[in-house]
Write a protein that binds this DNA or RNA. Structure first.
Length: 646
RNA sequence: GGCGAAGUAGCUCAGUUGGUUAGAGCAAACGGUUCAUACCCGUUAGGUCGCCGGUUCGAGUCCGGCCUUCGCUACCA
């Protein structure tokens, strides 16, 4: 079997419900699939849900459900959401399926046999919620940097020898410019790898949910290690026949899971197993919602695809066309290097300009003219040369944009033909030709209709139902062959045209609110931003917990700036008769000569650390200054050196 | 702190290897048209291309420095 074009979205983690961000990735893949199929290619589009992980087991327990019932329910929510946008994936993989389990265990075995997976021990803090290990130094008030609860774990686990793949990965990235995109992200990966990859712990104690390590039921495979393998599992690997899909042509995803997972861990896993690497791994940016705000459920500014569809239905769209309107707006807004603002305002503007004013109106006016001027049928005439040229140009532009994975440009290329068509209509003015009974009328009307027919096919990957509606109004079967676009055969003379029916009613928009005074006010607000409120109170601790900190009065006897750092000061302090070196981030506020001889308070039993290659045995206590700088604490009068501070 | 990206019209962005008067879409003003969904078409206005310096006959483009924003990353607290 010949190789088929294979593209994927990530599998979505079942801890959240579908939102516009997921829909964006889906849209990009769905449009790509439909476009390539128009060009006669066989395409397989994979999506699915990620359902393993300790967190899922715990979330299910919290919801009073079995993990299976819980994941069935959430997974179904994604299926439903995608049905409402008519995303035509060919396969939906769930990581709880036997085919996935089989592939994961097989790959694990292969890596273990080849010596890329070894048993090691891990002792340290574990963030259950994020399912990641947290270094001691990164703990904040006994919690992970994200504020999650951590627990101390001490266990033997399997490790993947990721560290061995840095150089091969860099070489591959170097030799394959198309591998990682866009370029900015590619650079990010290169610098990430260059600073050294660490082996990765890829198993966890078995919580009764997940994929057991082959031959060792006491452990399950780490959810990320397992999740990535879905792309391979869906090809049927390791059973025969997978080569007609693998290697994958494109893995699409949002930027946050690009660098560490899809651009580093996953290719390393494949290399380790001697499997081919995907041709292209590409990340899009995020939607932001409103005034520079990130997508945030608490702000209530998240735009839900369902609500958007509803909005267009209320505006008067047929349900299927309302769905298309959402699809179009998504495709036109795909962020690449930067994030993009996705707001009611931008959505309405895109809809009105492209779909209502340009596309909808072009179809409507053309059909009206055909009924009035040429008897409501497709004239028997030759299309005019500049119109034919415009179609060819648009075809090439759309195909090229898709080949470069620029979905927004492809949509622009498609609607560009419609814009040209509106100008052409005005320039050739069929109503004037009709009035003067000019013989060019037939050719002009034929050209206009041919332009519409071509537009139908070019917008089809984005708005398939609108394309069908266009074909129906032209009384023709849908045009589904890219090569036929713009040909006389695509528009048989004599075809009786149907009556025009508006597809996308214009959205009436509130007049843009006049806010000349708003700009300076905004600026002022931004400048005053540093005056933040009282810092959040830390969680309550008991007196016993407090006494675990051994605070002492110490005297600074030497001070010098740490080489190569403008923040760090290297200090020698005396605590009673003990001398210690402490490295502190106070060099911006204090000069060495200000410090020598001073009494300060130090944390005496802090775990030693290395900063800029210097040992630091303790910490100097200081208050946060208004600019974030340190203000040293000093006893009110000379205190006995080494005395405890309570 | 390090690395990277971005900074071009009111908004969103395009500007190839340096080469005339810096472009598009949206928004605005004006005009035109009547086939059409108050739409479409045209014209106009609007830019010291973040700032400073350099290379060059010539810089949005190349080089150096700085500022701002964002991302990644190290560290500090």
């Amino acid at each position: 079997m010949p190789k088929r074009y294979y593209l994927t979205t990530p599998i979505y983690y079942v801890n959240s419900v579908p939102h516009a961000g997921h829909a964006l990735t889906m849209m990009v893949c769905d449009a790509t699939k439909r476009h390539r199929e128009l060009r006669g290619e066989e395409v397989v589009f994979l999506t699915g849900t990620d359902e393993n992980g300790t967190k899922v087991a715990e979330a299910a327990a919290a919801a009073g459900e079995t993990p299976q019932a819980f994941t069935d329910r959430i997974s179904q929510a994604f299926v439903e959401a995608w049905r409402k946008l008519d995303f035509q994936y060919d396969d939906f993989i769930r990581t709880t399926e036997p085919r996935h389990h089989a592939a994961v265990q097989r790959l694990f075995d292969i890596l273990r046999e080849k010596g890329h997976v070894y048993m090691g021990s891990y002792e340290g803090w574990y963030d259950v919620s994020a399912e990641t290990f947290v270094r001691e130094a990164d703990l904040v008030d006994g919690k992970s940097p994200d504020g999650n609860e951590v627990r101390w774990v001490s266990e033997e686990n399997y490790f993947f020898r990721l560290s061995a793949f840095g150089d091969p990965l860099l070489a591959h990235i170097e030799q394959n410019p198309e591998f990682l995109q866009p370029e900015g992200r590619r650079n990010e990966v290169i610098s990430f790898i260059k600073q050294g990859l660490r082996d990765m712990c890829i198993t966890r104690a078995n919580p009764g949910w997940g994929i057991p390590v082959p031959g060792d039921d006491s452990r399950v495979i780490y959810v990320w290690f397992d999740a990535l393998i879905n792309y391979l599992a869906a090809t049927g690997w390791p059973e025969a026949g997978w080569e007609d899909l693998w290697p994958c042509d494109v893995h699409w995803m949002a930027k946050e899971i690009f660098t560490r997972f899809h651009a580093t861990l996953w290719p390393a896993m494949l290399m380790a197993a001697d499997l081919p690497l995907p041709r292209t791994v590409i990340a899009h940016g995020w939607f932001t919602f409103g005034e520079g705000g990130k997508m945030s459920k608490s702000k209530g500014n998240v735009i839900n695809p369902d609500d958007l569809i509803q909005k267009f239905v209320e505006a008067g769209c047929q349900p299927e066309l309302a769905m298309d309107a959402v699809r179009w707006v998504l495709a036109r807004s795909v962020p690449y290097d930067n994030d993009t603002n996705f707001t009611e305002d931008s959505i309405e503007r895109i809809y009105n300009a492209d779909l209502a004013n340009d596309l909808g109106n072009a179809l409507n006016r053309a059909l009206n003219m055909a009924h009035k001027f040429v008897g409501g049928q497709i004239p028997d005439a030759e299309p005019e040369a500049d119109l034919v040229a415009a179609i060819a140009e648009a075809k090439a532009k759309v195909a090229d944009a898709f080949d470069r994975h620029r979905i927004d440009e492809a949509a622009d290329g498609a609607i560009g033909l419609v814009r040209f068509l509106n100008k052409y209509i005005d320039t050739r003015a069929p109503w004037a030709l009709a009035k003067s009974e000019d013989p060019a009328l037939g050719a002009v009307m034929l050209s206009i209709l041919l332009g519409l027919r071509a537009s139908e096919a070019l917008v089809r990957p984005f708005i398939p139902h609108a394309a069908d509606a266009m074909a129906k109004q032209l009384n023709l079967a849908p045009l589904t062959d890219y090569d036929a676009i713009g040909t006389p055969a695509s528009l048989p003379a004599g075809t009786k045209l149907n009556n025009p029916e508006p597809m996308f009613p214009r959205l009436e928009r509130a007049k843009p609110e006049p806010k000349p005074a708003a700009a300076p006010a905004e600026k002022a607000e931004k400048k005053e931003k540093p005056k933040r409120g009282l810092p959040e109170p830390a969680p309550e601790v008991s007196i016993d917990e407090f006494f675990r900190f051994d605070l002492r009065v110490a005297r600074i006897i030497e001070a010098e700036r740490a080489e190569g750092s403008d923040k760090l000061m290297k200090l020698q302090v005396r605590v009673g008769d003990i001398q210690r070196q402490i490295v502190a981030g106070i060099a911006k506020q204090y000069a060495p000569e200000d410090l020598i001889g001073r009494q300060v308070v130090v944390v005496f039993n802090l775990k030693p650390a290395k900063l800029m290659g210097l040992d630091s045995q303790g910490m100097i206590m200081a208050a946060d200054g208004p600019d974030g700088g340190a203000i040293l604490l000093e006893p009110d009068k000379e205190a006995p050196e080494g005395s405890r501070v309570h």
